[in-house]
Each structure stands twice: as C-alpha cells, then as structure tokens.
Design a protein around this nucleic acid. Structure first.
Lengths: 131, 131
DNA sequence: AAGTTATATGCCGATTGGGGTATATACGTC
DNA sequence: GACGTATATACCCCAATCGGCATATAACTT
C-alpha cells in the first residue's frame, strides 16, 4: 500500500515543512536547513525518510545534494500534495517558511538552486553529468 | 497542528479501512470487526485512536458503541477524507470491504445500524437517551 | 444477583520514530 | 595527499505504535 507510505511521511511537521518548501522547486540541504532553522542531522534524516518512501528525488550537484519532488509523482501522491497545499494555505508556520524561501531565492535567482553563487558557477561547467 | 493528527490516523491500513467503512454511515464495533476480519481488541484500539484524534465520533446504543465520522468535520479533515476516497477508489481491499458492508447492511436495512435486528427493536424503545 | 454480550483497557514484547552526538563519506581545493 | 565543506550514517536514548492476552466495564437478560 503505497498510500500508507505517503501518510507516514506526512505525519511529521518537519517533513511537511520540507515538502511545502520543495513545492517551490528543488533545494539543497543547507537551504532547507537554513529556512527551517533546524540542525543538519535532523533535516538530513527527514530527507532520507522521504527519499526512502519515494516522496522526494535527489541529484548531486558538486558538493550539494539537491532535493526535489518526484518528477512523475503517482496519482496518490499528486492528490495528497495538492490536498496538503490546500490545508496549509493559511498556516502561519508554513507561510513564514514560504516567505523565507522567496527571500532566499532572490539571493541566487539567476544562478543555480544551490548554495553559493560563486561555487554554483563552477559546478555549472561540470554539470554535464546531471539529469 | 491538527493536520498532523489526521495524517497520523491515516497511516495505518486498519484505520484506513475503518474510515472507508464509516463513509457509508455509522457502524457498531462488531460489524466493523466482522467486515475487516480482525479481532475485537484490534478494532477497538484503532477506534480509540481515531476517537482520541477526533476522526470519529461515538454514541452508545444499548450494548453497542456506534461509530461514525464527525458530524462537523474540520476543513482539513473533509479535504483529506475526500482525497482518501479518491485514492482508494480502485483499491481491491477497500472495494471488497465496501462490498461486504453492502451485503451486511442489506441484512438489517430497515431496522437499526446496530447488530441484531431483534435486539435493535428493543433498544429502539429505549433510545430516548441517544443524542 | 448471576450470567451474557459488547466493548474498552492494562500490561507485555517487538518495532518504529525522532532527536541528539559523533563519525563517515563524497566532493572540491590547494 | 592534506584539508575543508556538504551531507549521510551509526549509535544511543526515549517515546509512541501495534498486536496480542487477560481483564475490566457497561448494559442487557433472566
């Protein structure tokens, strides 16, 4: 029952916040970390959990692991993410996260979704391996 | 975060099956038990869990506890139950449960939602206490 | 009151979840 | 190769979950 795996992922606030952030596009771990204000281990573990349950996908970009929602989410997942988005619409915590995300994105908008613009440019030239 | 409580309830198959059944109207414990083919303790405990998290409501009818979905579900709950129904639409397990429910209901259709029609009539006359 | 039926609860054992610290791994730089 | 940075993993502790057995509770029956 894949559906249950989805619900298992959704019953933790940190994971909900991560999924909420990823709706805005892919993000590296340290950005998630920064926005959530959580320690690295915690974020990393929750991402591992989400990954193991098929709720997120990853690619490596130089030193960074860049997480995103699955490219072809199942019907169940799409439905539940949509439902989640709906439920979160008025939540202050999630609104704050989204606002922080926007501000953070404006810092590296034209470069890459990963941390530091300078390093991002370097990895741009080594990106041939990326999907 | 009420939403998380909802997801906590949804991440167990037995509970999903129970909620699926209750969409068809209120049911007493032993009917749920019969349809799921699960032991009494297990059903009772999951119902207690659902009750503690506000996903179901109960009333007593004579000897029986009759469970139902909340009368005024929150926006989040409604949304998720709708989403759940959608996701479950083609699931064989849940379809089988629903079929069993229909057959079982035809056995006491004009009487009461509780177990035995004969006893149901008796408790009908003592129903003044019910909400 | 004693017996029966329907349901809930206490306790146990096994498993999972979540947070933390410390450490490993992977990659890039020098 | 030595070092730094980003991320993952191993291990520990504690709390929650799930299933089962045994028992309690509540209502009805006689």
């Amino acid at each position: 029952m894949k559906l249950i795996q989805i619900y298992q992922c959704l019953c933790d606030e940190t994971r909900l916040r991560i999924l909420n952030l990823l709706r805005g596009g892919e993000l590296c771990v340290c950005h998630i970390q920064e926005i959530l204000g959580a320690r690295q281990v915690r974020v990393s573990k929750h991402l591992a959990y989400l990954r193991a349950h098929g709720l997120v996908a990853v690619r490596r970009e130089a030193n960074w692991m860049v997480y995103r929602l699955p490219d072809r989410p199942s019907k169940d997942l799409s439905a539940n993410l949509a439902c989640l988005q709906d439920c979160l619409a008025e939540s202050p915590i999630f609104g704050r996260d989204t606002a922080r995300l926007r501000r953070l994105k404006s810092r590296f908008e034209e470069t890459s979704p990963i941390c530091c613009a300078k390093k991002a440019r370097i990895s741009d030239s080594s990106r041939r391996g990326a999907a």
